[in-house]
């Protein structure tokens, strides 16, 4: 598993208090991990902070799963 994926998962576990085993790449923040819409805004902020990147609002709307976040960050990390 990539370093980005590890760090994303750690943030998700910390912020959502989610069971680590459930935080798979396919897991949806809202449908599977108990997040609400405000939680997802905060998650995106935490990703930006951790990876030093900016995630524009229109991109953030498409980040629904752990895998979506890993993919976006891997492609845009700078």
């Amino acid at each position: 598993m990539s370093d980005v994926a590890e760090r994303v998962k750690k943030i998700v576990v910390d912020h959502l208090g989610a069971d680590e085993a459930k935080v798979t790449e396919a897991a949806s923040f809202i449908d599977d991990l108990g997040a609400d819409s405000l939680d997802t805004v905060e998650l995106v902020m935490a990703f930006e902070e951790e990876f030093g990147c900016e995630i524009p609002d229109d991109a953030a709307e498409n980040i629904q799963t752990v895998g979506d976040a890993v993919k976006f960050i891997s492609e845009n990390q700078g």
Binding site: L38, V41, E42, M45, E48, E49, E54
Partner: peptide, 9 residues
């Protein structure tokens, strides 16, 4: 740090 750092909460 600007408005993007303000939590939705």
């Amino acid at each position: 740090r600007g408005p993007r750092r303000i939590s939705p909460f």
